[in-house]
Amino acid sequence: MAGTGKVHMRGTEALVSVEDLVMEFPAGRRAVVHAVSGISFDILEGETLGLVGESGCGKSTTGRAMMQLPSPTAGSVRFDGVEMTELSKEDLRRTRTRMQMIFQDPISSLNPRRKVKDIVAEGLSIWHNDAGDTAVQKVNEVLDAVGLDPEVVSDRRPHQFSGGQCQRICIARALVLDPKVIICDEPVSALDVSVQAQILNLLEEMKERYGLTLVFIAHDLAVVKNVSDRVVVMYLGKVCEVAGPDTLYAHPAHPYTDVLLASIPEPDPDHPVSDRQITGELPSPINPPSGCRFRTRCEKVQDLCSEEEPELREIAPDHYVACHFPNEVPVSVNGDGDSS
């Protein structure tokens, strides 16, 4: 798992590029939590980047560090030509209007005491765009776009809505300032499958309609595959594998990606439950393993894995892996009709 590799970066045309991002938190008694240890990726305009991994792999921390919530310990986040980490407080505030976030638990991320119209309009009122009919129109437009009837919902409060509807309100709130990028941090993990499908479809529609670029953070590979143009698999603060979704699923090269895929419950009784199971627990990010961080749970582990950290390298066109002993990947297949 190398975070140091940058071969997968696509140069200057990217809308957002994150380089060597490091995020560390003090854990008391001079211990340090290495939440994210030098990862790099970039996102083209109009693309959906999926960040996937287990709890504790640093995917949410990465999403938040992009927003400078808080600023990363080291590394750079360039958004539309601007270095986010060097912005003054005021410039950062202005830049953040164009980068919004949606969180996992839609109910707790809405203020229970405020009306829906005020929640959605808050961004506008902060930026003094709330004068007159245009603001009301804008709020109504985004509410309508996310499938809520403005006349019915405007004066209600969050507790009167289901989880799925609250997530729609959160999406409306994120859309109201016309952002370029929305970072979705596990937006459907707390929802039922039926509602999850509604929200995933809605995000796709909003992306089309408003020309958004999305960062989609989730632990469920099936969900990530459905929405992403490019997927970054993370483990314990490092990048394991980067590829287009269809390539990644057809030919997972990293042993960790393999295990993640085998863990997805198949809604098909004829599909035998795979005996592949990830063994052991996630090592502590305070004292991560040397070399490849996945080695303590990897089936293919060799001596080299503890001695040397694998760097990201290209093993097939637009398919990058950080592993000394990756699975064989057919090089000629050229992405399998990949959309990215």
Binding site: A197, N201, D220, L221, N226, S228, D229, G244, P245, D246
Partner: peptide
Amino acid sequence: SIPRVEHQSHTRLDAI
């Protein structure tokens, strides 16, 4: 409504 790994990415889901 279940997103399936076998499906191509960006397959529209049949939500209820």
